[in-house]
Amino acid sequence: MDRRRTSILIAALILPAATTGCGADDGPQRPQVAYVTNGIASFWTIAAAGAEAGAEAFDVDCDVRMPASGSEDQKRILEDLLARGVDGIAISPCDAQNQAGLIDEACALTHVITHDSDAPLSQRLCYVGMDNYAAGRMCGALVREALPDGGTVMLFIGRLEQDNARLRRQGVIDEILGRSFDSSRHDPPDQPVSAAGYTVLDTRTDQFDRSRAKANAEDALALYPDLGCMVGLFAYNPPACLEALRGAGRVGKVKVVAFDEADETLQGILDGEVHGTVAQDPFRYGYESVRILAGLARGEEGVLPADGYLDIPATVVRADNVEAFRATLRELTGASR
């Protein structure tokens, strides 16, 4: 945030219409692609940096759109893009099952791929992202490391309607309980499941309201005085857990295992308050999505990955590699601003 931005702000107050100032007109001949996220988060800021880097490298215009209020906003954005006639859309569907129809509609008009969260029932051309179930299992392994002698575990997540959220959570549970690989399994959220000394008590959702996220963590601490581990599955959940633990004076007594790479999470790993996290590579989500869309727009079908899935594996971050990871991250986001 520099001073120039501040002065734009003031101008924007007077001229609200002038706020969408990113449409640099380099000429109509460059393909236009769009990168649609499922919400607004720092995670998506990194992905947007990747998408912009991709646009630079593959000579396309990329429009990054972040819906503020979930699927209905996403629908509106998608319709606007289709009306404008873009050459390709990469989308992270908020609600894969119910948006299949919408995505198919878009497929009829342009090239559509999914990223971050897949919509396997739709006709999207491919999926760029990580296998959330596998990543969940990596996270579950971290829980077993943090609680070698077993114990109770609470899960915290924004919402469960999204495919990635559901798979991620299932992966965590299956790994903790030592079950076989089967991503189609489903445990209902509010029934405890246990095996071999581990109990997954409950999964609390907050619908992206951070006050709720913190209150959920606090209530769990109040309810279970002997809680062993809190797992925060969306980027802001681990920091909310840490805040609650600080308030309760139980930092270190209750383990925290994280997902994603929020600043507070990484700092927590450094300080020994968080056992570890599973980090995705959002920069590459953005970059690879734009690469594929650019190719498709120019008629190069070869850019599509085999079996429609480009795996961008997650990384496990613990105390031993957190410094290096943070340095890379800073480089990426620093370059983007």
Binding site: G39, I40, A41, A68, S69, F208, D209, R210, S211, K214, Y236, P239, A240, E243, A262, E264
Partner: peptide
């Protein structure tokens, strides 16, 4: 007070 308490303010959602 909410901001100081939660310490993570997401502009699109905070206070909805």
């Amino acid at each position: 007070l909410f901001a100081l308490d939660v310490n993570s303010v997401q502009p699109a959602m905070h206070g909805n």
